[in-house]
């Protein structure tokens, strides 16, 4: 038994190591991109639309609305990053229902990578929106004395993002694996159901937190 799918090495050549996490991620990417491409290849802007297009439209428009509700007035600017974050994490977690599947989000490397992306994206969006000077000024709020705390806060919340998602998903997979060895019937099913819920909730939390951080960084200009 292994704690992370990173440990499952499929192919290695020197520094380059193709592990299960990366392979699964590619699989998920392929599914998402191919599905999107298939649906958006023949988009209809009429009154009658195909079901899959309707589903994707609901996902995209709902994500946009959620971003707007958090406080970002132009959601289409952040939709690519935040929407992809949510879809990737959600799909990765929901696929847990497939037997033998190990979610990439159960790997601390993946969650850390996503958290690092957020960590970089927040100041980037902040600077893009309000300029370097006013963004850096937010670290001195409310007094310059708060600068170290703000920096620590920035780092710690990134760490928290990564650990929270990893912990939740990894523990879920782990619990199911342990339960399967103890009581192979009924209980793993219930736990799987609970895990699906947790997976979606975690995807939502991860995305919403990233949105809140970006909103906080871009707030300076809006104020």
């Amino acid at each position: 038994m292994h704690l992370s799918s990173d440990d499952v090495i499929i192919w290695q050549h020197g520094f380059f190591r193709l592990n299960l996490t990366i392979l699964t991620t590619w699989g998920l990417m392929l599914v998402m991109v191919v599905t999107s491409r298939l649906v958006t290849r023949r988009l209809s802007d009429g009154m009658r639309i195909p079901r899959l297009q309707g589903m994707l439209e609901v996902i995209v428009s709902t994500t946009g609305k959620q971003i707007e509700e958090v406080g970002l007035s132009h959601p289409e600017k952040y939709l690519g990053f935040l929407g992809t974050l949510f879809l990737f994490v959600a799909l990765s977690n929901l696929c847990e229902i497939i037997p033998g599947y190990e979610p990439p989000t159960g790997s601390l490397s993946t969650t850390a990578a996503l958290a690092i992306c957020v960590f970089i994206a927040v100041p980037l969006f902040g600077i893009m929106e309000s300029g370097l000077k006013s963004y850096l000024a937010t670290y001195l709020d409310p007094t310059p004395l708060m600068l170290p705390f703000n920096i620590v806060g920035e780092l710690s919340r990134t760490l928290a993002l990564a650990i929270r998602l990893f912990g939740n998903i990894m523990s879920g997979s782990m619990v199911i694996a342990i339960l399967l060895t103890i009581t192979p019937f009924i209980f793993p099913v219930l736990m799987s159901m609970l895990d699906l819920l947790t997976g979606l909730v975690q995807a939502y939390i991860f995305t919403i937190l990233a949105t809140v951080y970006i909103a906080a960084a871009t707030k300076a200009r809006e104020e």
Binding site: F15, N19, V33, S36, E76, T84, L87, A113, C117
Partner: peptide, 22 residues
């Protein structure tokens, strides 16, 4: 290495989804 690969994967995914979905 996985972290770096996943960052790249994620960024590629963002670009692809932007192009083919959003």
């Amino acid at each position: 290495f996985t972290v770096a690969a996943q960052i790249v994967n994620f960024l590629v995914l963002v670009w692809l989804l932007k192009r083919f979905l959003y």
